[in-house]
């Protein structure tokens, strides 16, 4: 049993739950993207942003230390992380499931990423159901997504049906009117026929798609669950002050595995392609018992060559 909210009261509701913090939602500019909302009328729920919400949990570039080489005893000065409480509204199930997967990496038992941890603790997740699937590339129906959110909205024409997925979520809607409804599950045109690809490493279906690839890294940049990064020191012109920062990187780049001395371990394009997909569907599962792919289709839609790994997999010969 959930609640209902009339659409004309949405802005009022959002402004109440995001009071004192930032509201992040899809905003239509030249493209649709998640942004900190300045004007509630900018919020657009048509389609899903091509760029997922991960940047709010680990920004494309994150300063770690201020460097001061003149201070021999303390050349590193830790960058203080400041984050306002935030509410993400209009995230899709794939976006939030992406976070569940990233938690495994950034909030492991032994090591926690400070920024990610703070962002996770400080962000309320208000999702919207996909009905119909917002992109022809979506195939999340094949990926067993979890119902993971604080609140989940379903469009009912002039009102939203809202379901809570957490205690926090429940308190946010406690004053709304009760309503009895079952949210329909997401239906996708596109399917992934098998997720067990262990036997097909040498299948020739890989080659055709791989041959089109430019190694541009757009697929990983847009992926809900890719957050590989590099750590870089950069000095200013005075060669005394600078920053050590984290920056997104991509396993699709040739130099991703380059070591001092110049050896590169995944030199062949095809090995990098397979590494990406095997990580998503096999390696991650071996470690964490879940896929690292949410079926959001962003890697396909963002690819300049429309390379589609589901086609590869669906075309394996048995």
């Amino acid at each position: 049993m959930g609640k209902v909210l009339e659409k004309k009261r949405l802005n009022e509701f959002l402004s109440k739950v995001s009071k004192g913090g930032d509201l992040i939602a899809p905003v239509k500019r030249d493209t649709l993207r998640f942004e900190i909302v300045k004007d509630f009328n900018d919020i657009c729920l048509e389609g899903r942003p091509l760029f997922p919400v991960k940047k709010f949990f680990s920004p494309a570039k994150e300063d770690l230390f201020n460097l001061n080489l003149t201070n021999k005893n303390k050349p590193f000065d830790e960058e203080k992380i400041k984050l306002k409480p935030r509410v993400i509204f209009g995230g899709r199930l794939c976006d939030f499931n992406g976070l569940l997967k990233l938690d495994k990496l950034f909030l492991s038992e032994e090591y926690q990423d400070d920024y990610y941890k703070l962002a996770r603790e400080n962000t309320l997740l208000l999702g919207i159901n996909c009905d119909p699937a917002p992109s022809e590339y979506c195939f999340c129906e094949s990926m067993d997504l979890e119902k993971y959110y604080d609140l989940f909205f379903h469009d009912m024409g002039d009102k939203y049906y809202i379901e809570a997925g957490s205690e926090k979520g429940k308190t946010l809607i406690i004053d709304l009117e009760d309503y009895d409804f079952t949210i329909p599950s997401i239906k996708c045109e596109k399917k992934l026929y098998t997720k067990d690809i262990s036997k097909y490493y040498d299948d020739s279906a890989w080659d055709k798609e791989n041959d089109k690839c430019l190694s541009c890294g757009k697929c990983t940049a847009h992926c809900t669950t890719c957050l590989c990064f590099d750590m870089i020191d950069e000095l200013e012109a005075d060669v005394k002050h600078g920053k050590r920062f984290k920056e997104w990187d991509s396993c699709q780049f040739l130099n991703f595995t380059e070591v001092a001395g110049g050896a590169i371990f995944r030199k062949d394009r095809i090995n990098r392609f397979k590494h990406r997909i095997y990580h998503k569907l096999q390696y991650f599962r071996e470690k964490f018992d879940m896929d690292m792919c949410t079926g959001c289709g962003r890697c396909i839609e963002s690819c300049p060559r429309l390379i589609d790994f589901t086609e590869v997999i669906n075309n394996f010969k048995d």
């Binding site: 990496l105 950034f106 492991s108 032994e110 090591y111 990423d113 957050l227 590989c228 990064f229 590099d230 750590m231 990187d249 396993c251 991703f256 595995t257 590494h275 990580h279 390696y283």
Partner: peptide
């Protein structure tokens, strides 16, 4: 620490 992906 098993986060950046480079060594995998």
């Amino acid at each position: 620490v098993g986060m950046c992906g480079h060594c995998m």
